[in-house]
C-alpha cells in the first residue's frame, strides 16, 4: 500500500499504458491483483503512470476486466463470493478461441497474474483432455515438427495411450 493513502478513503487511481498507447484508468486495488503492478506500486509509490510495453490494449483490457470482477467480488463480505468468482471465471474462459487464449495467457503471465494464469492454463488443459494427438494439433494449430520415425517411436513407447 502506498504511504499517502492513510488519510483518505477514496481509492487511488493508476494509469496503465499498453504497447499501442491505449491507457486504462484503474483503481489501485484492482491493478495490484497483478503481481507485476503490485511490485511497481510498492516500490515507486509516487508514479501514477505505468507503461507496459509488452502487452497491447486489447489483452490488457481483458486482464483488467478479470481483475476488476475479482476485486469487486472480494470486497463484498458475502460468503457466496467463491461461487460468484467461479461462475464468472467459467463465463470468462468459456468462449475464448485459442488465439485469444494464447495472448491472454502470455499477458497474464507477463503481468504475474497468478490466479488468472491458473484459470487460463486450466482452460488449456481442458482443451487437451481426452483428445487424440491430431485433435490437439488441430485445436492449437500446431504442426508436427518431429523427425521421420520420431513420432512413431513415441507412439510405440506409449502405444496403450493411442489405442
Amino acid at each position: 500500500m502506498s504511504s499517502s493513502s492513510t488519510t483518505t478513503t477514496t481509492t487511488r487511481l493508476l494509469m496503465l499504458k499498453a504497447s499501442d498507447g491505449v491507457t486504462f484508468e484503474v483503481e489501485e486495488a484492482v491493478a495490484t491483483k497483478l503481481g507485476a503492478i503490485n511490485n511497481m506500486v510498492e516500490e515507486e509509490g509516487s508514479e501514477d503512470l505505468i507503461c507496459l510495453p509488452n502487452v497491447n490494449g486489447k489483452f490488457l483490457g481483458m486482464v483488467l476486466e478479470w481483475c476488476k470482477k475479482h476485486a469487486n467480488n472480494n470486497t463484498n463480505s458475502d460468503k457466496g463470493n467463491d461461487e460468484v468468482n467461479k461462475w464468472w471465471d467459467k463465463e470468462f474462459v468459456m468462449d475464448l478461441d485459442q488465439n485469444t487464449l494464447y495472448h491472454l495467457l502470455m499477458a497474464a503471465d507477463y503481468l504475474s497474474g497468478t490466479e488468472l494464469v491458473d484459470l487460463l492454463t486450466e482452460k488449456v488443459a481442458s482443451m487437451i483432455r481426452g483428445k487424440k494427438v491430431e485433435e490437439i494439433r488441430e485445436t492449437f494449430k500446431i504442426k508436427s515438427d518431429f523427425l521421420p520415425g520420431q513420432e512413431e517411436e513415441i507412439r510405440k513407447k506409449n502405444s496403450w495411450a493411442f489405442e
Partner: peptide, 21 residues
C-alpha cells in the same frame, strides 16, 4: 506455462501430449 498445463493433465493425457510436437 507448459509445465503448469502439464500438471493439470492425467498420465494418459500426458502420454498423448508427448506426441504433439
Amino acid at each position: 506455462l507448459l509445465e503448469l498445463i502439464l500438471k493439470k493433465l492425467s498420465f494418459h493425457d500426458v502420454s498423448r501430449f508427448k506426441a504433439v510436437c
